[in-house]
């Protein structure tokens, strides 16, 4: 794949940044507005897919290599599990217990601030990372469509 014409390349290199930023916004404001980890992650991945379409697969791979993406994938999943386990360990309360919310935010005038939902934004970030990286991996591997590619990407992360 060589990529498309210069017009498409120029425009998409600009738009890509905006899409990426929008994805981050959707993830960070997931607890206040519609959206969240999954939707934001898909948007993040789509910015890379745009790169892949405009510049060709090799260029996208240079930007975000396969091993790095799979590391990010795992990091997202582990972060998500870590948030859940923190709830378990923090005062021996409970798996997925929203410890930040219960310990530090209850009773303060916190509603509708960016920092108002305790662990939920953290989980959203984790899911966004996971979904973005794994969706990118899926599309990349499918576009390779040849040798050394294993089926079995595992984005069955629970939302």
């Amino acid at each position: 794949m060589k990529g498309m014409t210069i017009i498409v390349k120029t425009i998409s290199s600009w738009v890509k940044v905006l899409i990426f930023l929008f994805g981050i916004y959707i993830i960070l404001f997931g607890h206040l507005t519609p959206g969240g980890g999954f939707a934001g992650g898909v948007i993040l991945a789509s910015s890379y897919v745009l790169l892949m379409l405009a510049f060709g697969r090799e260029f996208a791979e240079e930007n975000l290599s396969l091993p790095l993406a799979s590391k990010l994938d795992c990091a997202g999943a582990l972060l998500f599990a870590a948030v859940a386990l923190c709830g378990l360990l923090y005062g021996a309360a409970g798996f997925f217990w929203n410890f930040i919310h219960q310990k530090y935010l209850m009773g303060t005038d916190y509603e509708f601030n960016l920092v108002s939902a305790g662990t939920i934004p953290l989980s959203n970030i984790a899911i966004g990372l996971k979904v973005g990286a794994s969706l990118f991996l899926v599309i990349l591997t499918l576009s390779m469509c040849c040798k050394d590619f294993k089926p079995g990407s595992t984005e069955n992360e629970k939302e």
């Binding site: 799979s70 590391k71 994938d73 795992c74 999943a77 582990l78 599990a81 859940a84 386990l85 378990l88 409970g94 798996f95 997925f96 595992t154």
Partner: peptide
């Protein structure tokens, strides 16, 4: 044992493995 541990142990290990 807290019950989620039964799910958490294999899940966390599954995602740790590619790192190693």
């Amino acid at each position: 044992v807290p019950l989620p541990v039964f799910v958490a142990i294999p899940l966390v290990t599954a995602f740790l493995l590619p790192v190693f």
